[in-house]
């Protein structure tokens, strides 16, 4: 017999606490009538035959506006404490309210729950898709959204991709290697902030590194720039065969690419890689002193 004291939830984190955090923030930012409207819709959400989900989800910006949510450092930390790597930094209020709305759905029947959320995707406009994909790390039954997430990576709409790729902990936790590698490749092709991919280093793999080396060669052949952060994904897989590609990057005309190549070499256990880095004493020294790091390089590239 299961113990009465153990509450089994289909969420991977403390969902009740998350809802409380969101509610506190929403009450601060919403006009009383908008908050009331939202409460009413939430109350109708799980009634059989109600269209409250579709209507409230679509009409959200009409009711709550689109202002950027003002969030304190403490509040941001609280979100990340409840759900690791989850952030609502720079979210608009309609996005927050939409995600909150999804967290009000009854999860008793997995099939019904999944179908109700899946129904929203095919009819969603851009901002709705952004909200839906940013909700993935908070939804119940985490494994149920793998296919949807992989499908989202095929989008060509920038903000939608960004919601999946950047600061979203879901993909690295749930995607199989194939879809994960697609996500990273797509991030490079569409020039997303690579340093904002959660789990980038943890999910590094040889297959991805090989594809990225091919990509780097294509770019060189076409006399186009090679994205410096590419070398971060290659670092642990530097071998005799691709060392010359890293060497090419180390002598690139682009400062960022030289720095990235040096950082990659410093992470490699290949003796030839160590030797190559030694030849560039300036970058080598910067790395050892801590003056040059992936984090610092990413910030510099983003103009921060």
């Amino acid at each position: 017999m299961p113990s009465d004291h153990i509450i089994i939830t289909p969420y991977s984190y403390d969902q009740a606490e998350m809802v409380q955090q969101m509610k506190a923030l929403m009450q601060q930012q919403l006009m009383p009538n908008a908050w009331q409207w939202l409460q009413e819709k939430a109350a109708q959400l799980n009634i059989q035959g109600s269209n409250a989900l579709a209507v409230a989800f679509a009409a959200m910006p009409r009711k709550v506006g689109k202002a950027i949510v003002d969030i304190s450092a403490e509040s941001a930390a609280a979100f990340a404490a409840i759900r690791p790597h989850f952030t609502i930094n720079q979210w608009s209020i309609d996005r927050l309210c939409r995600v909150w709305l999804l967290l009000q759905l009854n999860t008793d029947d997995e099939a019904v729950y999944v179908r109700r959320i899946e129904t929203l995707f095919p009819a969603a406009e851009m901002n709705e898709l952004v909200a839906l994909y940013s909700a993935l790390p908070l939804l119940a039954y985490p494994e149920a959204w793998r296919g949807r997430c992989a499908e989202g990576i095929r989008s060509n709409i920038g903000p939608v991709l960004e919601a999946i790729i950047c600061n979203n902990p879901y993909p690295s936790e749930q995607l199989p290697d194939g879809a994960w590698n697609q996500l990273v490749l797509k991030a490079f092709f569409t020039e997303k902030r690579i340093d904002q991919i959660i789990g980038l280093d943890r999910r590094a793999n040889e297959s991805l590194a090989n594809t990225l080396i091919d990509f780097a060669r294509e770019r060189r052949a076409a006399a186009r720039e090679v994205p410096p952060m590419l070398w971060r994904c290659v670092a642990l897989f530097i071998n005799a065969e691709n060392l010359r590609d890293v060497e090419g990057a180390l002598y690139s005309t682009e400062t960022s690419e030289r720095a990235a190549a040096a950082l990659a070499l410093s992470q490699s256990s290949l003796p030839e890689a160590k030797a190559l880095l030694q030849k560039n004493s300036e970058l080598s020294t910067e790395i050892h002193s801590g003056a040059l790091s992936w984090k610092g390089l990413a910030a510099r590239m983003a103009g921060e």
Binding site: N156, I157, G158, P159, F188, F189, T190, E191, R224
Partner: peptide, 13 residues
């Protein structure tokens, strides 16, 4: 900003 964030009808770069 989207141009720099990279999108779509604009292919990479």
């Amino acid at each position: 900003s989207q141009k720099f964030a990279g999108n779509t009808v604009l292919r990479g770069g």
